[in-house]
Simulated scan of single mutants.
Amino acid sequence: MQALRKHIHPGWFIIAPLLILVATLYLSPILNILWLSVTDPEPGFGNYAKLGESDALVRIIWTTVRICIITTIFSVTLGYSIAYAMVHCHQKQKNYMLTLLLLSFWISILVRTFSWLMLLGRNGLVNGALQDIGLIAEPIAFMRNELGVLIGMVHYMIPYAVLPLLVSMEALDKRVMDASRNLGATGTQTFWRIYLPLTLPGLVASTLLVFILSLGFYVTPAVLGGGKVLMVAEYISVQLLVTLKWGTAAMLAALMLFGVLAMLWIMSRFMKLSTVFGGAAR
């Protein structure tokens, strides 16, 4: 015990029971999911073998990955522009923009989704306005397809893309950009050669955050997709609540977990994850 006290701060002994409880409550469900994926309905890797046997399952996974990639590209691109504008605008304007950004986190995803349905539906405000002014003869199919799902997901994910980028940009030393311009670089050269590389950790963090969160979308594809755009999260719900195929649902959940861990591992091969999530570079 004396040896432990020399190497471990006494404070750790106080919070150790709570840490063990949190670890147990967090790891137990994950381990249970992994166990179900190889034991239900029978022991073995039959559930994972479905990935090579079921075209429908592969199509659902590919649809999910494709939509998440497109969502990430648009969300991070728009988020970078918004963060850049917030950093370089007047402090009062920045406060307004930050308030609106944080306000979006308090609005339910269900409210946002149905708002888009009312705006872009066949009888929605947008189609109605376009028909009234004579630009279109028939309503445009914004909803109940991948376009509608993408609109809803990008709208929801932009605030998550902005925050890591905003933190990264605010941490930059503006004197570096000033020095670049003083040495004769144009604004475009300063951005591409100095500013963008320095904000790369925030860009990676934003990309990872948006893509990982997009993988678990359920409400938006279900409502705006109208049952025509089936993603993994919704398919897992069907397997659990309708067909009662817990093994298949657990396999898909485990696959998503392994995919996220694999992305983090690959990213760690190229850069320190501590810098991505705001830690020191060393």
Rank of each mutant, 00 (worst) to 15 (best):
M86L: 04
Q189K: 10
Q91A: 02
S237V: 15
R5S: 15
G128S: 07
T243I: 11
I212C: 10
L51T: 11
F258V: 04
A249L: 11
A249I: 09
G52K: 13
P41E: 10
L215Y: 09
W35N: 10
D40F: 14
L18D: 13
S115L: 04
I30A: 06
G124F: 02
L135V: 10
G46A: 07
T24R: 09
V232K: 09
A83S: 04
K92A: 10
V87T: 08
L125G: 05
T207Y: 04
A16I: 06
A222K: 14
A222E: 11
Q2A: 13
L196T: 02
A23N: 14
H155N: 00
V87D: 05
T186E: 03
L135T: 11
G11F: 04
L36V: 06
V219G: 01
N145G: 11
L78Y: 12
R112A: 02
I133D: 09
L117S: 03
G216R: 10
F211T: 07
L209Y: 00
L150K: 01
F270H: 09
D173W: 05
P43H: 08
N47I: 08
D40K: 10
T71P: 01
S206M: 01
R175P: 12
K94A: 04
H9C: 05
T243A: 12
G52E: 14
L19T: 11
V223A: 13
H90G: 14
V238P: 10
Y96I: 00
Y195F: 04
Q93K: 13
Y235W: 15
R144F: 15
F217Y: 09
L102H: 00
L34Y: 02
G226Q: 15
M86Q: 00
T39I: 04
Q189V: 08
G226T: 14
A249K: 07
R59C: 01
L255W: 06
T275V: 12
L110M: 05
L230Y: 11
V210Y: 00
K92R: 13
I30T: 07
S28K: 12
T63I: 03
C89K: 01
N123C: 03
M97E: 02
F217E: 05
A85Y: 05
L18P: 08
G184K: 05
W192A: 03
M177S: 06
E42A: 10
L200A: 14
A23W: 14
G226I: 15
L257F: 10
I236W: 12
G225W: 06
N95A: 15
A83M: 03
T64W: 01
R193K: 07
Q239Y: 15
V229P: 08
K92I: 12
S37D: 09
L196A: 03
